[in-house]
């Protein structure tokens, strides 16, 4: 269960559509909404969706505040799966919370 949160209890947005981002290659325990397959990969922000209570906190009945900006990020399938058999232009869009994103190239 997640939810829209008041703007005044939100972390400021770091990214905007068009920004190149990488998903953190992190493996914390708990209820995580960032699938393994996308961690460490780089894509482009296509939508800034506003801020939502952090599901990693909500899962434990905590308020999930301050809310985290949520983005739709687009990846090239060939970037995710090097042996991807479909069209080179095929893509995947996925919602990623800001605390899982870094500017592309800054991920070690």
């Amino acid at each position: 269960m997640t939810g829209r949160a008041a703007a005044n209890a939100s972390v400021p947005a770091r990214f905007k559509p068009g920004d190149a981002v990488s998903v953190r290659r992190a493996h914390p325990p708990g209820h995580i909404r960032t699938p393994w397959y996308i961690r460490g990969h780089s894509g482009t922000v296509v939508h800034a969706l506003g801020s939502f209570a952090n599901p990693e906190e909500l899962a434990y009945n905590r308020p999930g505040l301050p809310a985290q900006p949520l983005y739709r990020v687009r990846f090239r399938q060939r970037e995710i799966w090097p042996d991807y058999a479909g069209n080179a232009a095929d893509t995947l869009d996925i919602e990623i919370f800001q605390h899982w994103l870094e500017p592309a190239g800054s991920e070690r």
């Binding site: 997640t2 939810g3 829209r4 909404r33 960032t34 699938p35 996308i38 969706l49 939502f52 599901p55 949520l70 687009r74 399938q77 479909g86 069209n87 095929d90 893509t91 995947l92 869009d93 996925i94 919602e95 990623i96 919370f97």
Partner: peptide
């Protein structure tokens, strides 16, 4: 082909 993985809200 554009896949949408519905991971959040």
């Amino acid at each position: 082909v554009r896949v949408h993985d519905s991971t959040a809200d």
